[in-house]
Simulated assay, not measured.
Amino acid sequence: MPSGVRARVLPASQRRSLDDLAQDLDLSHGDTVSKRSAFWTMLTLSSVIAAGGVLTDSTATVIGAMIIAPLSTPIMGIALGSVQRRRTGSAKVVLLACALVIAIGAVFSTVLPGSYELLSNSQIASRTSPGIMDLVAALATGFAGAVALARRDVAAVLPGVAIAISLVPPLVVAGVCLGRLAGWLALGALVLFVSNLFALVFGGMVVFAALRHGGPAGREPGRPARRTYAAMTFLFAVVVVPLSANTALTLLLDTWTGRAKAAAEDWLADQPDASVTSVDAKSRTMYIQVRLPGDLPPVQGLLDRLDGQLPDGVPVVVDASRGRSIDAGRVGQ
């Protein structure tokens, strides 16, 4: 970090000491028994709260779990240990914590009925399809959290950081999805968690290195080891590739749904008081919901209008407002 930026972002009068940071972020520093007891207790309780909030689709409950969850502590401990070039055991704690939270989510999934549709739950749907903007927001939040930890005068923003960068809820969602044998949805939730973990560690490494906290004697102070850079580069690739692919897919689906809606509106143009209420792409099928007082016009006219607008072979289902569902066929066939 350039010295001018460091002086403004981390004024010398407000920088916290190494001991202060280690006391807060390193579970192996100081009263380790009390620290670990508090960490595992609050992590378990926050996981249960998050699982309850996810299954009841309660945003307020999930936010409460975000504030209570202590998982960001060992994650930031990884960043501090990397800058100091010493092992703190934080990575092991994070891995065990992830396993615990996922297990709790899987256990809670057993209460769901067999016909439960996971994507009908907004808490699940919003955490199983992350995009590149989620990483951008996470990086900004990671820097905000690191600065709040490194300065004495802005610690009040930490609850906001806990809300902005979700850690426990994606792991709970991954557990719920695994419990329901929805592997791809679980993978999406895990990608979201890993992107948030990367953002916190990266932001912490940059900010803590700017504090010029030294490592053990004989080592260059304030700079992580080369293998740390290699690990972060690998983690970044693991995160950014699926996020970019999912973002591109989302944009493509938005384009296709827009074309399908325009074609459906043209198809119903001659029907009085008819309208297209929604168009959704689910499970490789285009669902077009319409509202009209009379009978539907021939669906072949819709397929003809969709030809060239959507890829050939895409199934089209028309849902009418009276509860009728018509399998219109496949585009281009």
Rank of each mutant, 00 (worst) to 15 (best):
F202C: 04
F198I: 08
L167C: 08
A210Y: 00
A156L: 06
A155D: 01
A156G: 01
L187G: 04
A162D: 00
G160R: 11
R152T: 11
V154A: 09
R219K: 15
F193H: 10
L178C: 08
F198D: 01
I163F: 06
G160M: 07
G215P: 02
G183P: 00
L158F: 07
V157A: 11
A199V: 03
H213R: 12
A210S: 15
P169W: 14
L185G: 02
P159Q: 02
A150L: 08
L158C: 09
A156Y: 14
F193Q: 06
V206N: 01
G218W: 12
R151A: 13
V194L: 15
L200K: 00
L181W: 11
P159T: 00
F202T: 11
A182M: 12
V206R: 03
V194K: 02
A189D: 04
A182K: 07
L211H: 08
P216Q: 09
A182V: 05
L192E: 11
P216G: 14
A186E: 01
V207D: 07
A209Y: 11
L158H: 11
L178E: 05
A174N: 07
G218I: 15
G214N: 13
A156H: 10
A199W: 05
F193G: 13
V207W: 03
I163C: 03
A182Q: 15
V154R: 06
L149D: 07
A209L: 03
D153A: 10
S166L: 13
L185T: 05
G203P: 07
P216Y: 15
P170A: 09
M205N: 12
R180G: 05
A148D: 05
D153C: 13
A189K: 08
F202A: 15
L178R: 01
A155E: 11
L190D: 10
R180D: 03
A164H: 00
V147W: 01
I165A: 13
S166M: 14
W184A: 14
G160Y: 08
M205Q: 15
A155H: 04
I165R: 01
V207Q: 04
F198W: 12
L192Q: 09
V173Y: 03
A164F: 02
S195Q: 08
P170C: 10
S195P: 04
L190K: 13
G179Q: 01
L211E: 13
L197N: 03
A155Y: 00
S195C: 11
A164L: 12
C177I: 09
A155V: 07
A209M: 03
V191E: 05
D153W: 04
L187D: 05
A199M: 06
A150W: 05
G214P: 11
L192N: 11
F208G: 05
G204Y: 07
M205C: 15
P170K: 09
R212D: 15
A162P: 00
